[in-house]
Amino acid sequence: MSRETSLVNSDWVSLNLSTSGVVLVEVDEDTDAYEKGHIAGAVKLHWRDDLQDKVRRDIVSKSDFEKLLSDRGIANDDTVILYGGNNNWFAAYAYWYFKLYGHKDVRLLDGGRKIWELESRELTTNVSTRPASKYVATEQDHSLRAFRDEVLAAIGKLNLVDVRSPQEFSGELAAPAHLPQEQGQVRGHIPSAKNIPWAKSANEDGTFKSDADLAELYKGAGVNVATDTIAYCRIGERSSHTWFVLHELLGMKNVKNYDGSWTEYGSLVGVPVELGA
């Protein structure tokens, strides 16, 4: 993968708003953001209602993903452009999700909703609908997804990258600072994890830093590019942002997103936990 095949910029999106086969999809943490205004033609995916199983704690099944994309009018051969708020956290999560289920051509709008707004580009409140498709997904690609036993086995052996804020990593905070600190899990981090906050990979306007800067960031923080890597955060969306950087932009092999993340790990009985920087 590379920047050319995984990212588009806002000018590209402006030029392709009406291009056949290009589907814009907005995914936000603020689930009301789409209704307040979105890029013309974009359809909405709700990170919880659409992308979380309604009974189990898991991503949706292959058949539910097929139904979701079919209902949204997204076809297998469409070029899907994902964007969203919060520096593309949930758009990156959806990107990982699309890759997990084998979509061929999916890209992020570099900078997401923020760059679009900071450039004073037009938003609309007209809800977009598309004719239903017959989407067919592949089985989940587990080379992209880490489960808890793999994480435990990776302690001290593989690259564990904790992408949360330093305050969450150390145990000062239980959740990102824009959310109430009401989590039931213990605080802290997985032993041997390196704390490389996702935000260090992004510019202030939400766009990704250059490949050279990104490579230096992870190398400087002690990530061994020759070793397999697992990224985690609190619920798996910020770590999708870092998974995107490592796997899609920098082309590192064997990078997995641990979507169970701290919400799962911090609730496990008997596992090792470290506090402090």
Partner: peptide, 8 residues
């Protein structure tokens, strides 16, 4: 001066 969180 390091980033911690952001909200719209």
């Amino acid at each position: 001066g390091d980033f911690t969180a952001e909200v719209p």
